[in-house]
């Protein structure tokens, strides 16, 4: 009986350690997804729909999100730093009213050190975003 408890204890400690190690490893190496939002004028009517459009995004401790834009205002270029929950509230506060450069959005996204980049734009010509590795384009 005593041996059973000893083995059970060893088993629990082993699996708890394994779980903690796995969690720690996955958390410290969380997948980094960059949400690069085009804040051109044509996106003004779409900004309220963003959270719906991106509802497929997984929310777990092992995925981190960062939100950037191509606003000319640097204060509005980084809307959210790495976080497990993407928050689109700050996007709503941006007045989108003029065409903005997708090249600039690509440049900002390229410097973010992300595992995956999701560009969100409804621009007709997205050629500037096409050759970015590990990226995809979503139209709201």
């Amino acid at each position: 009986m005593k041996q059973l408890f000893v083995w059970a204890g060893i088993f629990i400690v082993f699996y708890a350690g394994l779980a903690a190690g796995t969690h720690f490893t996955r958390a410290t190496n969380a997948k980094k997804i960059l949400l690069a939002i085009d804040v051109s004028g044509t996106m003004e009517s779409e900004k309220q729909k963003l959270s719906g459009t991106l509802s497929f995004l997984e929310q777990s401790p092992y995925v981190q999100y960062k939100i950037v834009t191509n606003s000319p205002n640097m204060r509005l270029q980084l809307l959210q730093d790495w976080s497990s929950v993407p928050d689109f509230g700050a996007v709503s506060a941006i007045t989108m009213y003029v065409p903005l450069s997708l090249e600039k959005l690509a440049g900002i996204a390229g410097q973010a050190g992300a595992d995956e980049i999701i560009f969100i734009t409804n621009a007709a010509d997205t050629s500037a975003l096409r050759n970015i590795p590990d990226s995809r384009i979503i139209t709201p």
Partner: peptide
């Protein structure tokens, strides 16, 4: 200057449009 890097007409009109 902090928000736009340099203060140009373009920066001013964008700051006005954003309500800054």
């Amino acid at each position: 200057k902090k928000n736009f890097g340099e203060v140009t007409l373009q920066a001013v009109i964008d700051a006005v449009a954003q309500g800054d």
